[in-house]
Nucleic acid binder design. Structure first.
Lengths: 251, 251
DNA sequence: TATTTTCGTGCAATAGCATGCAATTATGTG
DNA sequence: CACATAATTGCATGCTATTGCACGAAAATA
């Protein structure tokens, strides 16, 4: 049995049944579990499936999609979130982006904090609903399913009436030459509009975002004021941003 | 059974039914309660659900916030919700109120339904985020903590630009003489504004609301078109509304 | 208050994992 | 064809994750 053939078979099985188990595969195919595990590891590295203890699950299914994204370095994400949350002072008005990073920031706010959080993400609004000191200003609009945030003309209009002290922005790519980018045009427009209304724009950049470039431009690096990265992030990766006068926070 | 798969299943069950019980899960899945409890604890740590004694509730705070309210006849509520959801036809524009009743309606929409749902409740938006056929139009504004919905001038303004086919309204009181009432002034204003923009206004009235009166008027009975009550509701309680030409649906 | 159910923690057994290594089998290359 | 190189595979090793059980604490219930 050819390796490639076997991998195709694994993916096919996964597609049909929604899951594969390493042990079962080794029995079915008459190979050691080690080989199967190796295959699974490689397929996972290619992003074709999601590796879990005991086997694998589909990579793309909405059900499997979110938990896997969530799992990418949970500790690091909360570290970034804590650092961001600590920057907020009482009485400030903060714009919080959508996305898992931003939800982590919302969760990280101290219960003593008293501030106003503006957001176009219902998830953020829900996450903050039991926070006694925080006023939430929700931006309405058409909900863009892919990332569950409000977008469109209504949302842009809503943003234009708020001026914030800080905008905590999530991105999918930050690159020395190409600046900030994200995978969706509408979202890019939202981020751009929010940034314009904010005194400071600070980017939440988990490791995998540094040096990455996505399809749609948000803004150039000139427009951002700060960058929060993990402590574990290599110095040379952030150097290009530091030299442009962007303040780096290591969380 | 893979651990990850199991956790996904728990979350799915939670999404469908609004609650999970540790003991039931252990029986269903053939695993010890310890394992289930461990899963629930971990999911809670990730913020994916809210752990409670005996099981777990959805993470969306405002929904689980009032477990006392929730305990009041869960089946009846989903029956009302199902009846409401069944009234919606493809292509319609629906206004959904905030509150537990309305969230139940959102959950009850068939996966085949293709419609636009406008709402000033982030909880509704989140509940509908994985529904493929539904466009969500979110109304922004200041979030009113008590019930977790957008209120205020911005919200009223947002409503004024949408015209809906049906408004499913939640109330805290419906009375033959005093009409529809609710416990908060801002909310009353929102409901009034939404009702004005909707061709039909239908009230979701679980048993305990009938004959009850709260502090703030919403609108008189003349302005409502339908009433959905539980099947178990005594006939004489709904008679006053029927005689005024309001169509009664028993769920 | 008394009783039962549910929790959380520590613990041990099992299953699954990554890594390095050696043997075998393809794949080039002269 | 001969030889070197690379890929593939299974095995041994030490490590991690998962699970069920026991036991005392906490919470619900009567």
């Amino acid at each position: 049995m050819l390796t490639t053939e076997r991998k195709a078979l694994i993916l096919e099985t996964l597609g049909n049944t929604g899951r594969v188990v390493a042990k079962e595969l080794s029995l079915t195919l008459g190979l050691s579990e080690d080989t199967i595990r190796r295959d699974l590891r490689e397929l996972a590295a290619e992003g074709l499936l999601q590796r879990v203890h005991g086997g694998a699950l589909p990579a793309s299914k909405a059900l499997a999609d979110l938990p896997s994204r969530r799992k990418i370095s949970v500790e690091d994400k909360t570290a970034i979130a804590k650092a961001a949350a600590a920057m907020v002072k009482n009485g400030q008005i903060i714009f919080l982006d959508g996305g898992t990073n931003a939800v982590a920031v919302a969760r990280a706010f101290s219960k003593q904090l008293s501030a106003t959080i503006a957001t176009h993400s219902p998830d953020i609004a829900v996450a903050l609903s039991d926070h006694p000191g925080i006023d939430v200003e929700l931006i309405g609009g058409r909900i863009y399913k892919h990332s569950n945030v409000a977008v469109g003309a209504v949302a842009i209009e809503g943003i234009s009436h708020i001026r914030a002290d800080i905008f905590f922005m999530g991105v999918t790519g930050i690159h020395p030459d190409h600046g900030l980018t994200t995978g969706d045009r509408e979202e890019a427009a939202m981020k751009r509009a929010i940034s314009r209304q904010s005194a400071e724009t600070i980017v939440l950049a988990s490791k995998e975002k540094l040096g990455a470039v996505s399809a749609y431009d948000i803004i150039s690096l000139d427009h951002i004021d700060g960058l929060i990265v993990e402590k574990s992030c290599p110095t040379d990766l952030v150097e290009p941003y530091k030299s442009r006068g962007i303040s780096i926070t290591r969380a």
